[in-house]
Nucleic acid binder design. Structure first.
Lengths: 132, 132
DNA sequence: TCAATTGCGTAATGCTATAACGTGTGCGAT
DNA sequence: ATCGCACACGTTATAGCATTACGCAATTGA
């Protein structure tokens, strides 16, 4: 799924996330866009839904937040499962991919005949700076 | 962290989860315990907090639900990271552990000097039965 | 005895997400 | 051309998840 031209709302939401240098909740995004005419959560959620679909934004399940994909131009969906390390102190997020992990998880699902649709890997803790 | 004697509320919540054969949300648990005098979400959340701490219950971040640990008597916290496969059709959850995955993620965090506190691995999809 | 800890109960609130309705616009098929 | 469809959008209301703040009671241990 590649990203077509974004609509106005999608572009606004994306821009806010891009500038944020950290994950944002839908309601935080909403607040940042009130000046641009946003009035309801649904406007944000609808835009996010598409951005997630296009693979340019990721959702962090463990903190109910959203973050731009670390791979600006490539299609993130082709990298296999995305993993995140989330600093609980500064909020910074590192995105990475590990094919060996993917492979192990795929082996397991295959063994169980489980049809995986979406895999979440999120490590919460402290980044180097904050742990020091 | 091993589980001491559970308090009344903790035992009630645990029992409900144990009988459930699938993950339950905190509010579902609350509803099931109204007859036993539960009246507020906090009663459930407080019990869950302890049960999570004792390692006898897990939280599924991606579906905001809770499930009993698949290892009745051992201390789950000693198995390394827990992974879950969650069927989006029937709601059934399989818990598993993969040391190789743990190892790969630990390698990554060590390389980044990231101090991991809690790792979430959740695979959503369809179980063998539901996929057929 | 006093202070600290822990569990509990209640009320209120806050945060996250979706349902249900209707509007307008672009576009292809007839 | 116009009808039907898909899609984005706007608004209101509601559902679902989680925590804050307050106070009380029992337990423990200095």
């Amino acid at each position: 799924m590649n990203a077509p031209q974004l609509t106005k709302n999608q572009a606004l939401v994306f821009e806010v996330l891009e500038k944020a240098d950290g994950p944002l909740s839908a309601y935080t995004i909403l607040d940042k866009l009130r000046d641009h005419g946003f009035r309801a959560p649904l406007q944000v959620y609808r835009a996010l839904e598409k951005l997630l679909e296009y693979g340019v934004v990721h959702r962090l399940e463990s903190i109910n937040s959203f973050v731009v994909c670390a791979h600006p131009n490539e299609n993130c969906h082709s990298h296999g499962t995305v993993a995140f390390a989330i600093c609980e102190s500064c909020g910074h997020v590192m995105e990475f991919h590990d094919h060996e992990v993917d492979h192990r998880l795929m082996d397991w699902t295959r063994g169980k005949k489980f049809k995986a649709e979406k895999t979440t890997i999120e490590i919460r803790g402290l980044c180097e700076t904050c742990a020091a």
